[in-house]
Design a protein around this nucleic acid. Structure first.
Length: 566
RNA sequence: CGGGGUGUAGCGCAGCGGUAGCGCGCCUGGUUUGGGACCAGGAGGUCGGUGGUUCGAACCCACUCACCCCGACCA
């Protein structure tokens, strides 16, 4: 491809809209064009890159036994009412009416449709196992799209679905998909992290996410460098340090004027935060929930949501708290009546806690469970944090931010039961099919790859997903010797099947070098009157500072070696 | 939805009551050519929209729309 013909311009000024690195670089390098919030066009360079990613995904899906198909984005809303997900997705679901005023949706994902298809086509255990996948555009009306291609409202996703007759089969399919995912990221040249993930209120058991570490990531990962434990912070567990055994002391009131926070309380009374209990109020599906957790820990809302089996959870407003007869800042689990209560199991790991007295400016000392208070549910609802102990090996946990670029899930029979996707087993018994689902955001993967692979000058593409492999850069196009040499090298490389972007513009060297660095193709070849005199070509890897000088006759061999080593 | 911010030429910005400017990019000609060259000439804007105030509005007021950031939310 000739740069003079290429559609898409690089920008000299930093686009003001973009803060996230990948967003900024993709706009600046002319890879994408924004149409609306969270809606982008892919320009030719980005599209090449995306197609390469898709191709890798396809190959690995096929290798894992997947069969590609294609489902519609436009679907009857009825299907989603049936699965209960119209409500679960809420306003995130793009909704419209057709001319007959039938309610339609534009699909955010495809469990409903794939299950319907499979129901119609699978009768017997002989039809299983099955892995079906597609690469298709999804639509989600996210409340806040962000970071260029990181979180968008229209995006391409590879979604795969597995169908098995039993748990063992599901385990096998899951393992095969996990392996395929690992292969995909490796082949893309992207170091990834596989972490345990929350499967949500309606999910199945196992779920893992594939994360590319990046500062701009939306997800927090908790990991143990010693034993390798890694989990999304939403899911992660950690050791809650136990307190020393103490004999239980009698409950007693203490005056705490103006003290409302745990920090102030601990300082005022001269006790560690772990000797206090924190009260937090949530609003779960229309009622106030009283949450108790040890003062040194924070509530993990995903765990809490799961513990409550709630679909809608948020912090309660002060009005809601007041209406429930609670005193914020001095609320107490003691004497709680008529309010749903959840406690973190950390309340079992300590003695003689300071708690609220449920009247302003007073707290109670020496509260002990179960002597002084009760809770409807006691379970782990604490947020694992950096520095806490690993649940598996006890070593201190680390914490990092990352971008979720893949998610695998064991769905079980959630959808097969709803849609009646069953099969007859060997004994002639009708049973629901066990399902798994497996997603990769293609555009997000490209964005995340750029987040991970760039420097101050621009993108540094891993070769497997780079739009082209080589940037051929003649410096004086008006010098016939240079342009002829460059033309002939271009043709040779094309004939040899090298993917080359040929900068045939009559631009100054600075412009060309800067564009080359910005776009970040793995190898740059420079032809100039100077190199021509010495019968060499300058070959520079984007990752390295220093170029190599290669004799003209050896260019194509050396180039191929270099590309093979990328 | 709450908080913050921005809408003026393709991109980056200035102008903040007197009828629109700068840099980059773009077009023409010439000179240049190893890290975003130079000279000369030129094209390009209903100043996000609507309504109001005013002799006069890019500028003041009201409403509205869009976009960005933080949070909430989010397979």
């Amino acid at each position: 491809m000739r740069v003079s013909q290429l559609f898409g311009k690089t920008l000299r000024d930093e686009p003001a809209e973009a803060e996230t690195v990948s967003h900024r670089l993709m706009l600046k390098a002319g890879l994408i064009h924004q149409v609306a919030a969270g809606v982008y066009s892919y320009l030719p360079l980005a599209w090449r890159s995306l197609r390469k990613i898709e191709q890798i995904i396809r190959e690995e899906m096929e290798a894992a036994g997947g069969q590609e198909l294609r489902m519609p984005a436009l679907q009857p809303r009825e299907l989603w009412e049936q699965s209960g997900r119209a409500e679960a997705f809420g306003p995130t679901l793009f909704t419209l009416q057709d001319r007959r005023e039938r309610a339609m949706i534009i699909a955010p994902t495809h469990e409903e449709v794939i299950t319907s298809i499979v129901r119609a086509n699978v009768r017997s255990y002989r039809d299983l196992p099955l892995i079906l996948y597609q690469i298709q555009t999804k639509f989600r009306d996210e409340l806040r799209p962000r970071g260029g291609l990181i979180r968008v409202r229209e995006f391409d996703m590879k979604d795969a679905y597995s169908f098995d007759p039993d748990e063992d089969g599901l385990d096998n399919s899951y393992r095969a998909m996990v392996q395929a995912y690992k292969n995909i990221y490796s082949r893309c040249g992207l170091p990834y992290l596989m972490v345990e993930a929350d499967s949500g209120a309606i999910g199945g058991k196992d779920s893992h996410e594939f994360i590319l570490l990046a500062e701009s990531g939306e997800d927090v990962v908790i990991q143990c460098a010693t034993c390798g434990y890694a989990a999304n912070a939403e899911k992660a567990k950690s050791v809650k340090p136990p307190q020393k055994m103490e004999s239980l002391l009698p409950l007693g009131e203490v005056h705490t004027p103006g003290i409302k926070t745990i920090e102030d309380l601990a300082r005022f009374l001269g006790v560690p935060k772990s000797k206090t209990l924190k009260a937090v109020f949530y609003w779960a599906d229309g009622q106030v929930v009283f949450v108790t957790i040890r003062g040194d820990l924070a509530v993990n809302e995903v765990k809490l949501k799961n513990a409550l089996r709630a679909t809608d959870l948020r912090l309660a407003t002060s009005q809601e708290v007041e209406a429930a007869g609670l005193v914020a800042g001095s609320a107490s689990p003691i004497g709680l009546k008529g309010i749903k209560s959840v406690a973190d199991d950390s309340i079992l790991l300590g003695f003689n806690f300071v708690v609220g007295a449920n009247k302003p400016d007073y707290h109670l000392r020496n509260a002990n469970y179960p002597r002084d208070f009760a809770a409807d549910v006691i379970t782990d609802i604490a947020l694992a944090e950096e520095g806490q102990g690993c649940e598996r090996c006890g070593s201190p946990l680390g914490q990092a931010r990352g971008i979720e670029v893949g998610h695998v899930f064991k769905l079980g029979t959630r959808y097969s039961e709803t849609f009646g996707a069953t099969f007859l087993d060997r004994e002639g018994v009708q049973r629901p099919i066990l399902m798994g689902c497996y997603g990769i955001g293609v555009g997000r993967l490209l964005a995340a790859a750029i987040e991970q692979n760039h420097d101050e000058k621009g993108v540094v593409f891993p070769i497997a997903i780079s739009p082209y492999a080589v940037y051929l850069c003649p410096l004086q196009m008006n010098d016939p010797q240079v342009s002829q040499a460059a033309e002939s090298l271009y043709k040779t490389l094309l004939e040899e099947g090298v993917e080359v972007l040929y900068d045939d513009r009559e631009e100054s060297p600075g412009v060309k070098f800067n564009d080359a660095d910005l776009l970040g193709l793995p190898v740059r070849l420079v032809v100039s009157s100077r190199t021509l005199r010495e019968e060499i070509v300058e070959l520079k890897r984007r990752k390295e500072q220093k170029p190599r000088l290669v004799p003209w006759a050896e260019v194509s061999v050396t180039l191929k070696d270099t590309l093979a080593g990328e």
